[in-house]
Design a protein around this nucleic acid. Structure first.
Lengths: 133, 133
DNA sequence: CTAGAACCTCCCCTGGAGGGGAGAGTCAAG
DNA sequence: CTTGACTCTCCCCTCCAGGGGAGGTTCTAG
């Protein structure tokens, strides 16, 4: 199967499939004499795996490592478990940061509603934000 | 005051100050004959305002708009309140997304610990992720 | 007067996952 | 035989807030 058919059956773009080849997560089985990428049926499963892994927040570089382990005959489970554990911890930290920021915005918002714009200090750009700094 | 002194007193880099000029959030009062940026004392307050606005998640383009309103003699409060309200709503949405993702990762993690790597289907890249797809 | 510090503009680089398009080769049907 | 669809590689562009450095002025202290 050539790249166009794979892209269509996978419901994605030719550009994406080429990009996946380039970063090493979905390489063609072989090339035709003229250099066309040729894929087998399993390319479709591989594509779905890549998407599933992306959907849980893994980056293509990490997905490539998982695939490389598998291709070396090792079971990547341990690596994957580590990876998702770390990613979950990172997410926790990120979520906490965003919550702090959101709470700050909410309190700025509440305070701003009690401020009178006419009592703005003309020397400041905006007392809503200056006051919150 | 020239750019180097401003950068030092503000505790930032010359590059950053030049960048702020370029995007229009902190422009010099004037230029010397030789083209050097010359700043007044208020540049320091302006700088702090920009940093405060960045700290609550506003982008330089938005900060520029706030400053532009102010420079046109309008009070940007309404605009700012809208902006932070929208940003807070965006953050809520983003936080919810990340929480979903994190919960998914946690459940993958829990399930993975009960799987036996030796029972991995060799045709799959990784049953941990495939199973979660 | 001269060395070196400070300043200028201009251009490329980062990271992630591709998108857009140029220019050229290849393949199938009419 | 030709046309049009498909494919190839290569290069630039996106977003964001700058960082790095080249190559060229200008200022300042000794």
């Amino acid at each position: 199967m050539k790249i166009g058919e794979l892209a269509q059956r996978a419901g994605t773009s030719v550009k994406t499939i080429r990009y996946y080849d380039r970063v090493g997560v979905l390489c063609p089985e072989e090339r035709s004499e003229s250099g066309y990428r040729l894929y087998g049926e399993d390319a479709l499963d591989r594509y779905r795996f890549v998407r599933a892994a992306q959907a849980v927040g893994l980056r293509l570089g990490e997905i490539r490592e998982i695939i490389a382990l598998r291709d070396r005959g090792e079971t990547p489970c341990g690596f994957v478990v580590d990876l998702i554990g770390r990613r979950a911890a990172e997410l926790d930290a990120r979520i906490a940061e965003l919550q702090v920021l959101r709470d700050e915005l909410r309190s700025l918002d509440r305070r701003a509603r009690h401020l009178d714009p006419r009592r703005c200090d003309p020397r400041l750009v905006c007392h809503v934000i200056d006051a919150g700094a």
